[in-house]
Amino acid sequence: MSLHVWWIYVTAVFLISATPGPNMLHVMTQSIAHGPRRALATMAGLMSAVLLCLVASALGLGAVLKASPRLFDLLRYAGVAYLVWLGIKAWRAPVGVPDGTPARSRSDGALYATGLLTGLSNPKLIVFAAALFPQFIDMTRPFWTQLAILIASFVAIESFWYAMYALGGAHLARWLAPANRQRLFNRGTALLFIGFGGALLGARA
């Protein structure tokens, strides 16, 4: 995996992680209810779920890809299609503020468990990782080293956005309250996803 390909991967994950989703909205609501410091337990639970999904996706992925180069290419193109689908979904996303009810004071263990269960409720991350990783792995180089770099980069970027949503969640929710701003944000994100998917068609891992 070249530095150029790694930068493409980092850019894609950065944009994908920035997009409001169940995990980010959970961090935001927990930060509003308990404060950014207490939300660290929630973020730890969510990140544990992300790591479990990524590792589950990686188990057996190397053997499958090495045994079937054609499957490698199919997964690569499936990843492109998935990014385009994310763009279409973002473009068509309805506007409106999620109904988040502040929770009562809870222990760090309870916040961690809730974050873990919230993260594990989205098994699509495993499919996403299996479709995305093959596009950035050079099969002529050590597989597990590259995979470790991809997972570490994913975790670092995801953690950054957890922190951003925790610290600025209340302000972000207020700024995105008007429907026109939500619509602009959704469509801008959609164009980025679709454009990145198109760019990947010309990039070889």
Rank of each mutant, 00 (worst) to 15 (best):
residue 109 G to R: 10
residue 82 Y to A: 04
residue 198 G to F: 13
residue 175 W to F: 11
residue 27 V to E: 07
residue 20 P to T: 02
residue 104 R to Y: 00
residue 128 F to N: 02
residue 135 Q to C: 09
residue 148 A to H: 03
residue 131 A to R: 01
residue 119 G to T: 06
residue 55 V to M: 11
residue 61 L to Q: 09
residue 138 D to Q: 05
residue 122 N to D: 10
residue 152 A to H: 03
residue 200 L to N: 14
residue 105 S to T: 12
residue 162 Y to M: 11
residue 17 S to I: 04
residue 81 A to C: 10
residue 76 R to I: 09
residue 103 A to Q: 05
residue 158 E to W: 06
residue 121 S to P: 04
residue 202 G to S: 14
residue 32 I to V: 15
residue 129 A to Q: 00
residue 169 G to Y: 03
residue 43 M to H: 04
residue 168 G to N: 00
residue 180 N to Q: 07
residue 201 L to V: 12
residue 95 V to F: 01
residue 108 D to I: 02
residue 28 M to R: 07
residue 12 A to L: 15
residue 35 G to M: 11
residue 181 R to K: 12
residue 160 F to A: 03
residue 165 Y to N: 12
residue 15 L to N: 01
residue 159 S to A: 15
residue 127 V to E: 02
residue 35 G to C: 09
residue 113 A to R: 14
residue 60 G to A: 10
residue 18 A to L: 14
residue 23 N to S: 12
residue 123 P to C: 07
residue 173 A to Q: 14
residue 45 G to T: 06
residue 168 G to P: 03
residue 142 P to E: 07
residue 93 A to N: 06
residue 133 F to Y: 15
residue 99 D to E: 14
residue 166 A to E: 03
residue 147 L to R: 00
residue 171 H to D: 03
residue 114 T to K: 06
residue 169 G to R: 02
residue 192 L to Q: 04
residue 204 R to I: 13
residue 152 A to Q: 03
residue 37 R to S: 12
residue 128 F to I: 01
residue 184 L to A: 15
residue 6 W to R: 05
residue 172 L to F: 10
residue 178 P to K: 08
residue 44 A to H: 05
residue 60 G to Q: 09
residue 21 G to H: 13
residue 94 P to K: 00
residue 187 R to D: 07
residue 198 G to N: 07
residue 155 V to H: 00
